[in-house]
Each structure stands twice: as structure tokens, then as C-alpha cells.
């Protein structure tokens, strides 16, 4: 009898895990991972999605001061509002007027949607703003999530730009600003609206038409005068295991890929892309016509142009991006580790 019990216990212990697995198989349905088939890259996604949602809900708005999004939100119609509470916990909608909230020192905890222009001087903090025209964000403003303008978005000094700051036309950002993601056909970085600078106006336009070479030289450490032709052009791309330095005033008609870092010295023009595992440093007056991507940090000195007019490029870092004043990017800036725009100190 005792042995029968033991044999039974042995059989149970032997097969129990299989039984458990089988019960789980029968009891639970399979879970196919869901792929968002219609997902598409849209750098202005936050604003576009919000505007679409808002417009859908607004059609049925009954004037009650409440609007149901994922949950019910209170709404302030800016067209009928003169003064705001210092801590505004409502979605704000400005349809027919320029949005210029008074008094100063307001914190907007919910989204703002403006169809005309928005002038946000003296606002301490805002969660998000979508605007179909121009936006001015005054000094010392903190954006929690995102800001987008269909036309021009100007950010004055000392702002925190939250997760995403985008524009359909032009973005101008002052110094001492923090950011994570920027996007616009042209982004003036560390600049003021009245003094916009871009090397595009002065660069030899022939350079813009140079097609990056795919012929590749491997494991170079320096791209210097010994590797250029009589026009000062290095006509190749580089793939290197080492740190790569491009010395002053050379034109690289190709892309550079380093398993370590890349240093582009003052006055260099790179026609292709830069890819690195380590840090990338761009010296003064550098032009990179392609995209820049690194798993490390990117440091950009003064008067640097990345990309060119009417084309979109990207500058992407796994780590941080630090810009100095007076640079311009045509397209997209993105960094996981946070970005900063500082005053240029020689």
C-alpha cells in the first residue's frame, strides 16, 4: 500500500509541471502581439493627434464647460475669458482671437489649442500647446510635454521645452534652453528672431550638389591634407574602428562611420552622414549636409549648419546634445539624454 502511494506520488510529481502547462494552454487563449499596422513616423504627432481629437469632440460641444476626451475635462473658451487663475486646470481653446493670457505667472496644467497666434509671455508652466499659426514662448517658461505651431514657433531664453517642440515652418530657440526633441524645416538654435543666422546664405552652392561617395576607406584616424585632392576634397567615405578626426577646412565628400568618436574640426564640410558609437564633436563653422547619429553625446560649437534648405536631416543622440548659440538645423533633433543650448564661450 505504502509503495502504491509512493508510486502515485512519483507519477504526480513527474507529470505535474506538464499538467500545469497543459491546463494553462487549455485555459488561456493565445495572445498574438499587436502590431500597429498604420503607425507612421510623424514628428508633429502630438499636436496633430490632439487637434484631430479636439476637433472631433468640439463639433458636439454643448457649451456646458465640459468636454469628454478619454475622461471628462473642463474647457475654457479663451475668446470669452479675460483673466485666468494662476493654476489653470482646464483645456483652453482660443478660436478667433490671438491668445495672450493675463495676468503673468500662470500655470496651465492642461492642453492649449489656439487657431490664431499665441503670445505666452509671463507663463510659468504649460502642459502643451497646439497652434495653427505662430507661437511666442516667453523667457523662463517650462513646457511639460509638447509645443507645436503650424507656422513659426519662437522660444525665448531660459526655457525648458519638455518632450517635443515642433513647427511646420520655422523654430527659433534662444539660449539656456533644455529640450528632448525638436523638429521644423529650419531650426535656428541659440538665436533670436531678429538676428537669424545660417551658413546656407554664404556657402558655395556647388558643395550642396556634391554627391556623397560610397567608395570607402577603412580604419583611418585622421582625414587631413594628405588625403584630399587639389580642390581640398576628400572623395571617399570612412568606416573606422578608431576615433576619427577631420582636420580644419577640409571637404569630405562622403560619410563617416566610427566605432568610437568623431571630431570634426573648424570649417569642415561633410557632404554625407556621421555615425558613431562614441561622442561626436562639431567645431566652429562646420557644415554637415547629412544626418548625424550616435550612441553617445553630440557637442556642437558655434555657427554650425546641419542639413540644408528644403531637405530634412536628423541629429540624433542616445546621450545628450549640447548646442552652442548660432547654429542651424534643417529638420529633426532628438536625444535620449536631454539637450541643452548654451552661450558660446571661446
Amino acid at each position: 500500500m505504502g509503495m502504491i502511494v509512493l508510486i502515485f506520488a512519483f507519477t504526480m510529481l513527474l507529470f505535474f509541471p506538464l499538467l500545469g502547462g497543459y491546463v494553462a494552454y487549455k485555459k488561456n487563449n493565445s495572445q498574438t502581439l499587436v502590431i500597429k499596422q498604420d503607425r507612421s513616423k510623424n514628428p508633429r504627432y502630438f499636436a496633430d493627434a490632439f487637434i484631430k481629437l479636439f476637433e472631433e469632440k468640439w463639433i458636439n460641444y454643448d457649451g456646458s464647460g465640459k468636454l469628454k476626451f478619454s475622461h471628462e475635462e473642463s474647457i475654457i473658451e479663451a475668446d470669452k475669458t479675460a483673466l485666468y487663475k494662476s493654476k489653470c486646470d482646464s483645456v483652453v481653446y482660443a478660436e478667433k482671437i490671438d491668445f495672450n493670457p493675463e495676468p503673468t505667472g500662470i500655470q496651465f496644467y492642461k492642453e492649449i489649442y489656439v487657431k490664431k497666434n499665441a503670445y505666452l509671455r509671463g507663463v510659468i508652466q504649460l502642459r502643451a500647446i497646439a497652434c495653427l499659426s505662430n507661437v511666442l514662448i516667453g523667457e523662463n517658461t517650462e513646457i511639460i510635454r509638447w509645443a507645436d505651431a503650424q507656422n513659426e514657433l519662437i522660444v525665448l531664453d531660459n526655457c525648458d521645452l519638455g518632450i517635443s517642440t515642433t513647427s511646420g515652418n520655422e523654430l527659433i530657440i534662444g539660449i539656456n534652453c533644455l529640450f528632448r526633441r525638436l523638429y521644423a524645416p529650419v531650426i535656428y538654435i541659440g538665436q533670436k528672431p531678429e538676428q537669424k543666422w545660417s551658413a546656407y546664405n554664404t556657402i558655395d552652392k556647388k558643395i550642396l550638389y556634391l554627391v556623397p561617395k560610397t567608395e570607402t576607406k577603412r580604419n583611418l584616424k585622421y582625414i587631413d591634407k594628405f588625403l584630399i585632392n587639389e580642390s581640398g576634397i576628400a572623395e571617399f567615405s570612412v568606416v573606422s574602428k578608431r576615433n576619427v578626426t577631420v582636420v580644419e577646412n577640409i571637404i569630405v565628400q562622403g560619410s563617416i562611420r566610427s566605432h568610437k568618436g568623431i571630431r570634426i574640426c573648424d570649417g569642415v564640410i561633410v557632404c554625407g552622414n556621421l555615425f558613431a558609437e562614441g561622442n561626436i564633436v562639431l567645431g566652429k563653422n562646420v557644415c554637415v549636409l547629412g544626418s548625424i547619429f550616435t550612441q553617445g553625446d553630440i557637442i556642437v560649437e558655434s555657427r554650425v549648419m546641419i542639413g540644408q534648405k528644403n531637405k530634412i536631416v536628423s541629429i540624433v543622440a542616445r546621450g545628450r546634445i549640447e548646442f552652442s548659440e548660432n547654429s542651424v538645423v534643417y529638420g529633426n533633433v532628438s536625444c535620449e539624454g536631454g539637450g541643452k543650448i548654451s552661450k558660446w564661450l571661446e
Binding site: M3, L6, F10, L13
Partner: peptide, 8 residues
């Protein structure tokens, strides 16, 4: 399991 299997 080890003990019971041993005896069995």
C-alpha cells in the same frame, strides 16, 4: 521528487 524517485 528526488527522495520519492529514489525509493520507487
Amino acid at each position: 521528487f528526488g527522495i520519492i524517485r529514489y525509493i520507487v
